[in-house]
Design a binder for these strands. Structure first.
Lengths: 391, 391
DNA sequence: ATTCCTATTGACAACGTTGTCAGTAGAAAA
DNA sequence: TTTTCTACTGACAACGTTGTCAATAGGAAT
């Protein structure tokens, strides 16, 4: 039945196993193993082919070698200006679009960075940071792969691997509130992939970072509350494993100590994740037998909850209770009374981190740099007992 | 001075031009052209090398061929289960991470999609859409490249080219308010790259899309205002070249006509970009000699501006003026009075669009599908004249 | 006319995979 | 023992670039 694809004989053929699902044959005469060729010839030339023009297509069109085309396209001075012009014209005429994938493979640089952030809808914070990042990226002709960890440690690990597999040149990362072990991030170091922490940095791993001065934030908030005459000052603190929470708390405590005021542990409560136990935190403070008259809240969102709950209970703000939040959420300036807040430069933060990262990528600089950005107190009605003090 | 790298002679050498900046020589005796080898030998083996383990490293460690390793890693049943196990173990031991770049080059699919959106900080809309997109992407093991067009037509073109050059498998795009010509998007079609419009779709190009039912939004808003007893109903409309603006306007007009109410052109104003001339729009309506008693605003942001301006002028809301916005911005439920709004499912929109796109990618389906998502009216104080009507 | 040399072009090996097919040892069948 | 035949493994050509180096035509110098 089957005849040899070389000599055409039929009698000399015997079966010779399978490759995948395809029967193989052996011709005794030619000592040749073979499989029957597929019937559908050249399916590629019909539809699939010529989706993209390559350097070789240009070379063929111009009857020159493809390496000359490559050089012309790269502006290499060894090529004759005339041929360069011809190549450039033909490239435009044929709508040539360079394959960055192939380029990455040979150059070992992708001009792509990875971005890992825990969330994009919890507040306007990360969108603003992203805005800053993208501004610099498009200026420097970089591309970005965006990953959301959704505050999950497992996702964060998966994201890191995904970025490594996609051979990014560098990574901007804001760790989850659950990240303790950092070996997945350490991988970047092993592979010489620079990374910069944004906003949230782990305490257990050395690395470049761009964060706001959270210690100063705690100080400024408490200083302001003391100025307004508060004497029992409380703090709703953030997740304890995040450095920024600790720093704000440290600023909070140090400032109280500086003013020789007692630190009452019952006035410090911890919110474990953005809104998980926030209601309990707020209720705890308001229901104390000896409640606070001033609160520094680590996030505007919970500050707003506090204001709403206090209004509900008939507690007058700011006369009975002053509130200072952090983050300058758009809502804060719209709520009644408007919420005082500590704010850092968010868009700027994205920009600075990206510039830092790209510099590390391009200079192969090994040294870490840690940038601390200044914070600002925006005084609004929620903490202003003397209206005339508004500047 | 220079001796032939082959025969070692000195007298037979003559110069032979340059290649780049490097001097070349010619040996008459051997008829050989050559350049002097670089002094620094194997700089790669020191630092640069072995950043990443490859399939060949595993093959060498196991003393088998790299194609067998590849097959083992891919789970190809032709490899012996024993060798597969050996390979898998060694891959883990050596911390092998597959190079997706190389894979993309040979497979012509990157498992990456491009996302082009006009903005990420103008409202919570796009972050929410992104959230939905990312949820599906991580579920389906896809990666995304994020591009912001910043409402600029030129940027949008650049973004499209960037995505093509990065060989994405598909694109999600929300066009800018300025996009008229769509040839840059048509490119995707030419290259067989599926794309899905999110929220904003051009009128001049056929394509899959996922949008909210903007016509219905206009209808619902006006129906509600009429129910509340409004008789002079105004509309602040969005950019005129965006289909969604036109649809909302069409719903607005049709509903007025349906109720046999006149359409007063002085009550329809156009906002050309998010906040560009919004103040003028608001002022125009409030300063009319015969002002409206109900307004449907195409965006919550401008609805809020309207409320603030009306309060400033002492116009009572909702008794003298009812306002309905669109977008359900978080601020809308916090402002006083709370703003009624029309809202569509934003996160859902991102999910549906992404599922649609991935389906088009994986089935190579050529047919376009246009999904219209239902909108919902959230009634709040800004448009509720009879308090008891709250359900 | 002969030699030298320069400007330009071409050939080819990477890069790290996948997939096709050829080759082989040795078990099963004769 | 000889002849099938099967289960594996290996070689190698893609994929679209970049970069290194060899080759060549023909002008300048002798």
């Amino acid at each position: 039945m089957v005849e040899c694809i070389k000599c055409g004989e039929v009698g000399t053929i015997s079966k010779a196993g399978k490759v995948g699902k395809k029967q193989r044959y052996f011709c005794k005469h030619c000592k040749l193993h073979f499989t029957l060729p597929n019937k559908n010839i050249a399916p590629r030339s019909e539809l699939e082919k010529k989706q993209n023009v390559t350097i070789k297509d240009i070379a063929e069109a111009l009857q020159i070698s493809f390496s000359t085309v490559s050089k012309a396209l790269l502006g290499n001075p060894v090529v004759n200006p005339e041929t360069r012009k011809k190549v450039l014209d033909m490239a435009i005429k044929m709508n040539y679009q360079p394959n960055l994938i192939a380029k990455t493979l040979v150059k070992h640089t992708s001009n792509t960075i990875g971005i890992i952030i825990p969330s994009i809808i919890s507040s306007s914070f990360y969108p603003e940071v992203l805005q800053g990042i993208q501004e610099i990226l498009s200026e420097k002709k970089y591309t970005s792969i965006l990953c959301l960890s959704h505050e999950s440690y497992e996702n964060e690990i998966a994201n890191c691997n995904q970025l490594i597999n996609n051979r990014v040149d560098g990574v901007l990362i804001s760790i989850t509130s659950k990240t303790q072990d950092t070996s997945h991030i350490k991988q970047f170091e092993d592979k010489n992939i620079p990374f910069v922490f944004i906003n949230r940095a782990p305490e257990t791993l050395q690395g470049s970072s761009v964060t706001v001065d959270n210690y100063l934030a705690g100080c400024k908030a408490v200083e302001h509350l003391i100025e307004q005459g508060c004497t029992r000052i409380a703090h709703i603190a953030g997740p304890t494993n995040l450095a920024f929470s600790k720093e704000r708390l440290r600023g909070f405590c140090d400032t109280l100590i500086k003013h020789r005021m007692p630190i009452d542990m019952s006035l410090i409560v911890y919110n474990d994740l953005y809104t998980a136990n926030s209601k309990e935190c707020v209720a705890h403070l308001l229901n104390l037998s000896h409640p606070p008259d001033g609160v520094f809240v680590y996030s505007d969102f919970i500050g707003i909850e506090l204001i709403l709950a206090a209004k509900e209970k008939g507690i007058a703000i700011p006369t009975e209770l002053c509130v200072v939040g952090m983050g300058n959420n758009p809502v804060s300036s719209i709520i009644d009374p408007q919420l005082s807040t500590i704010t850092g430069p968010t868009v700027e933060m994205g920009k600075i981190a990206t510039e830092l990262l790209i510099e590390e990528i391009e200079t192969k600089n090994q040294k870490f740099s840690n940038r601390l950005l200044d914070v600002e107190l925006i005084v609004r009605k929620s903490s202003l007992r003397n209206e005339s003090e508004i500047k």
